[in-house]
């Protein structure tokens, strides 16, 4: 078995045997479980807690699309914040603890070290997101007695691309910035920039900046062309991880 495969297996085992198995799945599955329930019972909850403040305002009857919108909003906000914080030390954490030295003085290249870590966590996020989407789908079907798959899965997959892009961003930032807090701060800055860029329509149409809005539109059942944002996001992901690997090769450990 090659050193890279052994290292990838270690990375996967590390997820299963440390806090990593609890935090990201915990956050996503919590929102996946609560989203449909909250969407279904929002009118009752609001009426129970603030009966006098609604005046004549009538809350529309919730539909399965509200549950989908809730899930996609959480994927575009809370899940991204979680990814930024969790992966701020993806590479720098190993450099600091000395485990990078343990691995990189053996026949594993620095490029492989960075690429394998990024790839394994990209896969992990995909698995967690699919599980969360399945949970939301099932609970939506229970709560609303109808749950068409297409709006949910198309929007979730677009959100997945956005999440994977942020894992690539954090891979680069965790190579560039030794401090996890510093990398997380820079990651939040990247999130803010991408959100602002998404407001400019031409940029949103042809770049990953449009992924968030596209996911929201798809969850609402609006047909949306996501080809350019998805293709450019994949290209940017590859470029970010390649730059991270190139920079890590030159770094003194």
């Amino acid at each position: 078995m090659s050193g890279n495969v052994v290292f990838a297996r270690k990375e996967a085992l590390e997820i299963l045997r440390t806090w990593r198995i609890w935090v990201l799945p915990g956050i996503l599955l919590f929102f996946a479980a609560t989203g449909p329930v909250l969407a279904r019972y929002t009118p009752e909850i609001v009426s129970a807690f603030a009966p006098d403040q609604l005046g004549g305002f009538q809350i529309p009857t919730p539909t399965y699309l509200d549950a989908y919108a809730q899930w996609v909003k959480n994927l575009s906000q809370i899940a991204l914040f979680a990814l930024i914080i969790i992966y701020a030390g993806l590479v720098s954490g190993e450099s600091k603890s000395g485990t990078a030295v343990l691995v990189l003085t053996k026949p594993v290249s620095r490029s492989a070290f960075v690429v394998v870590k990024s790839a394994v966590h990209t896969l992990f996020y995909a698995v967690v997101l699919v599980l969360g989407t399945l949970l939301t789908w099932g609970l939506t079907a229970v709560a609303f007695h109808t749950a068409p798959g297409s709006p949910l899965w198309s929007s979730a997959l677009v959100s997945l691309v956005l999440g994977e892009l942020f894992i690539a961003v954090m891979t680069l930032l965790s190579v560039l910035i030794g401090s996890s807090a510093g990398a997380a701060g820079a990651g939040l800055g990247a999130y803010a920039l991408l959100s602002i860029a998404g407001m400019w329509k031409p940029l949103a149409r042809y770049s990953p900046a449009g992924l968030g809005n596209d996911a929201t539109a798809l969850a609402a059942g609006t047909p949306t062309d996501v080809l350019w944002p998805v293709v450019t996001a994949f290209a940017l992901m590859v470029a970010l991880v390649a730059i991270a690997a190139a920079l890590y090769r030159r770094k003194d450990l």
Binding site: M1, S97, G98, V101, V103, K106, P107, V108
Partner: peptide, 25 residues
């Protein structure tokens, strides 16, 4: 062997040894 060796704290000694050996193929 570095001056302050760093290990994956969640591994046992045999797991760490198998991991290190595995990296050499």
């Amino acid at each position: 062997l570095p001056d302050v060796p760093g290990f994956y704290d969640w591994m046992t000694a045999p797991e760490l040894m198998r991991f290190a050996g595995g990296l050499f193929g």
